[in-house]
Design a protein around this nucleic acid. Structure first.
Length: 455
RNA sequence: GUCGCCUUCGUCUAUCGGUUAGGACACAAGGUUUUCAUCCUUGUAAGAGGAGUUCGAUUCUCCUAGGCGAUGCCA
């Protein structure tokens, strides 16, 4: 059984980079018919918060990345870590260290000054102490080599590695220890994570070996950089995935875009989630980091909206309608309106805005446009008279009436159509007037025409 | 500083030694259209630099430069 995991630390919301990592791990599990585990890495009691846990869960949920196990919390497993740490101590594969932070700081500075790798000097290694932090007794010689699924062969000399701390002064375990224990205990056999973890991997491999455990596979994903070329992180320019919902993006569009940051399948750009799962290969992931580009994401969103089912749009639209305080009525039929709007809206925020005119009345017109289009009221007056007499309120018939007015006044379509559009919409932001007028309905259309004439 | 990873149009990418280096976003020009938007057509634009291997290198090797990451009692 293949098993992957996403293991965020709850020190902030779920951002774009984390979302892509989660997505790729999720895809791989789906593709292999394996399991996807969500684990919250909250051993740093000072920085972890429940609010962050909630935010991450909300983000994962909105993206639709369902997990088969979890959320598992590391804080629930402290006894297990303690047991492993004791085991390592007993085996002399770990030792207590009482060096002060001050001494360590001075040591680091000294080594850096000498142009050497800043690492612990092993001062307490053979002192047989019983207090302080616990350090892993990392092998002093040899090379750690592993075959990364996306990066290929990576090797790091053990001399570069530190006797890393695996338990803090207060006995709480640290990241490198807990990851290894958890991934082993949870039977994770492929670790998909950001390549900022490459440097941790040899340390973890040494821990696996010290514990006599089988190694999982490693797949390190390239980072996502911001427009400025600097890595996207909580501290730098990374938007919460929920901010993308708020901005009117569809989760499938975000995911499609994220998949294309690093992964490719020939020249294809647009994929359904199922297609990605079917076609995805870790081997086809680029090794280099990618820059996040808002414009392209917007294009994906536009395309996704266009090809989305009305049902899906509607369910994603609900939040936006509430957010903008729009109440849908029975007429016009919301499905028809959405079907009409889906070809012209790039975001759901945009769609909700354009949807307003069909369900909500207004009492004024866009000043600038009114000045331009309501200057001459004659076309509107003619329109009103003709439309009042129109019995069959259908787009085709309405169009005929507009044409008729143009003919009567001997003016172009635009001279009638533009004022009409502004009269109907209030802000001039609408598509073809015939279909819009039909959807708005005869009563309201005539009312708005009168309002425009009096404006 | 040290170590690791990376390097094709502005951006995302294709290319599994031989291509007029392809596609997408953005941008520009033109067209359709009743504003906006959509849509269609066309165009501008790339292998970091230097050695080597080879009949031939974007592709393989090395060096340099640049970028990113790590160097935490963060993850």
């Amino acid at each position: 059984m293949m098993k992957s995991r996403f293991a965020p630390s709850p020190t902030g919301y779920l951002h774009i980079g984390g979302a892509r990592t989660a997505f790729f791990a999720w895809i791989w599990a789906k593709k292999q018919h394996g399991k996807f585990v969500l684990r919250i890495e909250n051993t740093d009691l000072e920085r972890s918060t429940q609010a962050s846990v909630d935010a991450i869960l909300q983000g994962i949920d909105w993206l639709g990345l369902n997990y088969d196990e979890g959320p598992l919390y590391q804080t629930d497993r402290f006894n297990r870590y303690k047991q492993i740490i004791q085991h390592l101590l007993d085996e002399k594969k770990a030792y207590y260290c009482e060096c002060s932070k001050k001494r360590l700081k001075i040591l680091r500075e000294k080594l850096t000054k000498q142009g050497k790798k800043a690492k612990y000097d092993g001062c307490c290694r053979d002192k047989n102490l019983h207090n302080g932090v616990v350090r892993f007794n990392n092998p002093k010689e040899g090379v750690v080599v592993f075959n990364d699924v996306v990066k290929g062969k990576i090797s790091i000399n053990n001399q570069e590695l530190d006797d890393l701390i695996i338990a803090r002064n207060d006995n709480t375990p640290t990241y490198n220890l807990t990851v290894v224990v958890d991934d082993h205990d949870m039977k994770i056999n492929i670790i998909i994570r950001g390549d900022d973890h490459i440097n941790n991997t040899p340390k973890q491999i040494n821990l696996y070996q010290a514990l006599g455990w089988h190694l999982p596979e490693f797949a390190h994903l390239p980072m996502i950089l911001g427009n400025d070329g600097i890595r996207l992180s909580k501290r730098h320019g990374a938007m919460s995935v929920m901010a993308y919902r708020d901005a009117g993006f569809l989760p499938e569009a975000l995911l499609n875009y994220l998949s294309r940051l690093g992964w490719s399948y020939g020249n294809q750009e647009i994929f359904s989630i199922n297609e990605i799962v079917k076609l995805f290969e870790l081997k086809n992931i680029n090794k280099a980091s990618a820059s996040f580009n808002q414009d392209k994401l917007l294009w994906f969103n536009k395309e996704t909206i266009k090809s989305s089912s009305v049902k899906n749009l509607l369910s994603n639209l609900t939040w936006h309608l509430q957010n903008q305080g729009i109440t849908i009525k029975d007429t016009p039929n919301i499905e028809i309106v959405v079907r009409y709007l889906q070809n012209r809206c790039k975001t759901l925020v945009n769609m909700a805005c354009e949807l307003k005119m069909f369900y909500q009345d207004f009492d004024t017109f866009d000043e600038k446009l009114a000045k331009k289009f309501f200057k001459d009221k004659i076309p509107l007056k003619h329109l009103l008279v003709e439309l009042e007499m129109l019995n069959t309120w259908k787009a085709d018939n309405i169009k005929e009436v507009v044409k008729q007015v143009c003919f009567e006044l001997n003016i172009g379509f635009g001279r009638v159509g533009e004022p009409f559009r502004l009269a109907l919409s209030g802000d001039g932001n609408a598509g073809g007037i015939d279909i819009v007028a039909e959807l708005v309905g005869k009563n309201k259309a005539l009312l708005r025409l009168k309002m425009a004439i009096d404006f």
